[in-house]
Amino acid sequence: MSVHDFWTPFALEPFINALIIGLSLASIWLVAALGLTIIYGTMGVINMAHGEFIMLGAYITWILQYFLGFPWLLCLPISFVVVGFIGWLVERGLIRHLYERPLDTLLATWGVSLVFIQSIRLIFGGEPQYIDTPEWLKSVIEIGFVYIPSIRIFIFGLALGLVGLTWLLLYKSNFGVQVRAVMQNREMAASFGINSSKVYGLTFAYGAGLAGISGAMFSGLKTIFPDMGLGYVVEAFLVVVTGGGELFGSLATAGIMGEMFSIFSYFTNDTFARFVLFVLIVIFLRFRPQGIFTPSMARR
């Protein structure tokens, strides 16, 4: 292999296309990481079943469409609600008994993920499934030399919408005050009338719901299969850890990671770009283990 096979020289038009692909990737990683950010950032729980909540969202979309003929757009909010409810059940039945034991939470949520994967495989089989999206989302928008599939613009917009919604919920609502109070000091929050157990349950449900809606979104982009969660959860975890478990940390990190990946893979290739990105993250975390914006070393 010569150097020229490995290294693509700079050219403006394809480079700008690459930047736009970067934005699209960033929005996908952001959506995948959002629920995880909320659950890790507020509850300190590392939810190993996050990828499987994404997978469940995709399967719920497929079930609604394949068996009941629901249009794809309607499946998005339903996936949010259904996976949110499943998340709530998982929190009530399992995780709330383990808050004092973080390592056990890790193991237990991993167990939950295996149960989900195998149940789906048993019920629906392991073969990939496909979703039909509306016609207007199948088109490609052309601006000069830039080509963007409209579904990617849709996902980008929805990602920003979900971040906005989450921000409103966390920083502008009464529920958000309760969540942030429990986050800082659970005993104090309880001492002032906040039912911290209920807050944890609803927070986990909301995080799971976000995973569900992201799975529904991804179903319009890629195939659906029982192990699909793995394909999203690695980047999601990197976004959350690098972002310090904070909403705006995740937003910034997803943007930076998406663009860096896309630029590296423009000059080289996907595999090498992934390698460089992961190495850079490891180096970054070596010097700022608390994440991108978090000011102090205070960690849970």
Partner: peptide, 25 residues
């Protein structure tokens, strides 16, 4: 409850800390 060590939530503003009390009303 006015706990030992005061139990103020440091990231909240003075206003938010006082409003925290209203959840028990």
């Amino acid at each position: 409850y006015i706990p030992q060590g005061r139990g103020i939530l440091p990231k909240f503003t003075v206003k938010e800390n006082i409003l925290l009390g209203t959840f028990a009303r």
